[in-house]
Amino acid sequence: MAIDWITVSAQIVNFLILVWLLKRFLYQPVIRAMERRERRIADRLEDAEIRERSAEEKAHDHQQKIDELERMRDGLVADAKLEAEHEKRHMLDEARDEAAEARKNWQRQTNQEKQEFLKNLQKQAADTIQVIAKKTLADLANAELEEQMVHSFIHQLKSLDDEEFRRALRQSSTPVNIVSAFELPAPTRARLTRAIHEHLVEGIEVEYDQSPDLLCGIELNAEGRRLGWNLDDYLDRLSGRVEEVLSPARATG
């Protein structure tokens, strides 16, 4: 139980030195390192939280954009449907118009063909009738058809009671023009000239022409008026009948 006071004081000094040394080399560095680590971890956690929050915001933004795009897409699809419907209707209308146009064209063509056919028929009928009439008249009355025509024409002149026309003829200086489908023999011409002088105007000059256009007939042209006889009337009646016969065919076309 001996206490060496010199040793005691030395130990006190030793202990105080040890306290200082350990404080300097152990406690302070270790605690500082731990604090720094804790701060770093806290910083990282905070950083992670900030990042998470920003990521959430971004995700939210993207969701909004997706929604907007979906809305836009729906709108576009609806517009496209509407436009397609419109286009379809337009195309149908066009097709209908085209069909109508084609039908109209076809009808016009058919009509034209019919007209042509009728014209041909008219011509052929006229020819045939003329031939038949000529033959009949020649056979029956032993007279020429032309002669009969001239006779009928002279009869027309006789029965004409148009004083105005006569007066006009009297005042005009142009000759009267007689057009016929056939060649008139000289005696017939003389007879016609005589009849005109007798029934229309005394001493007027008369010219004679021949025209194949005039279907089997004879005609007088003067002062813008026409007077005569031909087969047109009959042929017109014939063509009217033919048209009537053909009209059911048009209806079915």
Partner: peptide
């Protein structure tokens, strides 16, 4: 007593210094 106290002091301080020389904060 003093010699062995110094020994203990040297040991503690030496180990602390060696270790805390390169402290990792990671």
């Amino acid at each position: 007593t003093i010699v062995f106290t110094w020994l203990v002091m040297a040991l503690l301080t030496g180990v602390s210094w060696l270790v805390t020389r390169r402290l990792s904060t990671g």
